[in-house]
Simulated assay, not measured.
Amino acid sequence: MELHTSRLSRRPALAAAVLVPLGLAACGNRTVTRTDGSTTTVRFMLNWYPYGEHAPFYYGAEQGIFEEHGIDLRIEPGQGAAKTTQAVGAGEVNFGWADTPVVLGNIDNGVDVKSIGVFLQTTPSAVQFFADSGIDSAEDLAGLTIATSAGDAPTTTFPLFLEAAGLGAGEVTEQNIDPAGKNSALITGQVDALIGFAHDQSPIIAEASGKTLDSISYADVGLNFFSNGLITSGAQIAADRDIVQAMLDATSRSFAAAREDPEAAVAAMRGKDPQIAEPHVLLEQWNGTIDLLTTENSTSDVPGTNTEQDWETTISILADAEMIGADGSLEDYVDTGFTPAT
């Protein structure tokens, strides 16, 4: 893919997840800075309420990793990647955790954010179904009804999944369902399968239904793009690059530590949110996340280290899905001056 240096055209409509009214800009950009030896309070917003993928942040805070990097981390739940992205861009919080397709689409629409390190480098997007459904391969999806949610990354890229799997759009029936209702739709038999993030949803559905789930990942058919990662505002980068680097380094170290001791990482989440799942569900979610931290192109085992090749692939796929403009460059979306310390 050729990366152009021009700014992206402002597309009037991309995905629904990008079109949440900004309404935050009036808050102004509030940034954080620090002096040597000081500890700075940093507000950090998740993409959703806490689930297993977020264990490294709680573990890193508990183990003093963020404090060692001069950060007093204040973790806040989110209400979706779009709202998190826009809260970061408006300066309501200093850093966020958000899905890359949503982040890039919001950048196209003028939100002042940059990716500074993607951690889920293999997409968790997948078609999920009960293991006893008789589905053994992507070809078996033909003729089935699959729950989708308009505007999210798995749904918007679903046509590319079907193409990669050798299926035509008319070979499956898509039933648009609100994200909150998709799990129930599968459990009650309203649909044969659903698409979403398997590392998060499948353990929850299994817990609620008492049945084993299976899935076909988009990456299984050769379609891979970046997912959740660390973002901050352009204003924060301009105000203090050192604290941005410190946040990235502490996050990377926390992910590495949580990967080494999953049980302890999940235990650090206990009691942190009234909506949090049972520990065994959180553990399954975190173990599923570990499998997503690298790609076949990864040149480093340090979490959050991205390759230009994977970024190019991501930008190309999202442009093909019309989630972002066709003329975006790497520099439009990423501050490449930040790399996790080894």
Rank of each mutant, 00 (worst) to 15 (best):
M1L: 11
R7V: 13
R10A: 13
L22S: 14
G23C: 02
L24V: 13
L24K: 12
C27V: 11
R30F: 05
T31P: 09
V32A: 09
R34C: 04
D36S: 14
D36L: 07
G37R: 02
T40G: 04
H54G: 04
A55G: 09
P56K: 08
F57R: 00
A61I: 10
I71S: 03
G80C: 10
G80F: 03
T84S: 11
V88Q: 13
V102R: 00
D112S: 14
T122C: 00
T123N: 07
A126L: 01
V127Q: 03
F129S: 03
S137C: 11
D140C: 00
A147C: 02
T148R: 08
S149I: 01
G151N: 03
A153Y: 00
P154G: 00
P159M: 05
E163R: 08
G166Y: 08
A169F: 05
G170A: 11
G181M: 04
N183F: 15
S184E: 15
S184H: 09
I195K: 02
I195R: 00
I195P: 01
Q201G: 00
Q201M: 15
P203V: 02
I204H: 02
S209N: 13
L213V: 06
S215A: 14
D220T: 09
G222V: 04
L223Y: 08
L223K: 12
N224W: 01
N224I: 02
N224C: 08
S227R: 00
N228V: 09
I231E: 02
S233F: 06
G234S: 10
R241N: 03
L248W: 05
S254T: 04
F255I: 15
F255T: 07
A267C: 11
Q275H: 13
L283Y: 09
E284I: 00
G288T: 12
T289E: 06
I290F: 10
I290K: 15
T295E: 11
N297I: 06
G304H: 10
N306M: 12
E308Q: 13
E308L: 15
Q309N: 14
E312P: 01
I315S: 07
L318H: 12
A319I: 11
D320T: 13
I324A: 02
G328S: 09
E331I: 01
G337Y: 05
P340T: 05
A341H: 15
T342N: 14
